[in-house]
Amino acid sequence: MTDISSQDPATDLAAGATGARKALMATLAAATPEAVAEKFETLTPPAFDLVRQPETGLVMVRGRMGGTGSPFNLGEVTVTRCVVRLSTGETGSSYSLGRNKQKALQSAVIDALWQREDMTARIEAEIIAPLAKGQAAEKDTVREETEATKVNFFTMVRGDN
């Protein structure tokens, strides 16, 4: 391991797993309901229980005074979340902006399945990687289109006299 800051390898491992799960949940949250449904159809999930029904609610978004100062409440967003438990024992969660309950349910099942050792690699390769790639490509397009509107200033050089 190159990271020497941490004393405890178990903590590192847990932090890495949390990071990977965060990334997975973020990718699913950023995907359209149609994209999640399309990927979900390729899986054959085991039976599962709804620990928390897909539920739509509000999260108050905060900003910071001046960008980096004390927080203040900006306004709310709609959020839909869901928790499932697979018959094999894994608990999966989802949180995403919007009101799509099917997406919330399917994302939670994918999150649970990903936690199964026999499924992790497949879900990362067949679901998360392509979704993340598409999302990154969309962001790149925005960056490239935006870059074309960057101003290049010309300095008019005047003579000495």
Binding site: T56, M60, V61, G63, R81, V142, T146
Partner: peptide
């Protein structure tokens, strides 16, 4: 709608800037 809670403060410095 029920209120789930408060977000972390958004980081406008890390914005995907369009303008």
């Amino acid at each position: 709608l029920p209120r789930f809670g408060y977000s972390l403060a958004v980081d406008t410095g890390a914005m995907l800037v369009e303008r």
